[in-house]
Write a protein that binds this DNA or RNA. Sequence first.
DNA 1: GTTTGATCATGT
DNA 2: ACATGATCAAAC
Length: 225
Amino acid sequence: MNKSDSRPHSVAMLLSRAEQLAGWSLAELAQQQGLEVPRDLRRDKGWVGQLLELALGASAGSKPEQDFPELGVELKTIPVDRHGRPLETTFVCVAPLTDTAGIRWENSNVRNKLSRVLWIPVLGEREIPPGERRIGQPLLWEPTAEEEHLLRQDWEELMELISLGRVQEITARHGQVLQLRPKAANSRAQTAAIGKDGEPIQTLPRGFYLKIGFTAALLARHFML
DNA sequence: GTTTGATCATGT
DNA sequence: ACATGATCAAAC
């Protein structure tokens, strides 16, 4: 199952493949894919996600939108504890801090990325070595009307603050299900944004993240079925 | 620097 | 104990 022959031609095939990975340890999957297993993830924070991308045939390191544009599916691995509860927030995409005039929820990157997501839970407790962590049952998710409403509300509130030149007042506490947090190499990184008087300023790049409660609820809904 | 993949690690 | 703010790596 190398990259060239593993590219799913349908959503059903993608889901089927993801289901077959449930129960595998990351060491087993890494060996099959010819990858080394890092001792820990301190310097390999995206390793799990990249391993699953390779195994499922996603377009690696791409710039564009979803991982499977032709299928309209975004792939997300999510670290969970033994009970399937998320251990971390989920990064969605970088937040636009300038030229926000024509951006609406309907054509936003957040909505596009979250329109359909293949969630792959993976044990992520830090005491468990990466290689011993197991892959869980996947979930092909599309936001319910209620979930989309919550996402939209937060997105509009955050985007309004950004548009008003108040990005530097925003903290991770804003938003019920979607939050804005730093997304950069380090705290010295700078990118263009809008200032309080509409003037150009330099600030820390930010990204949109899903809060744990939101992903916990959608995963729980799946487990209860 | 930007965007992809995220998790780390300190403050509260 | 847990979330926020900070950080790591690769491709471009």
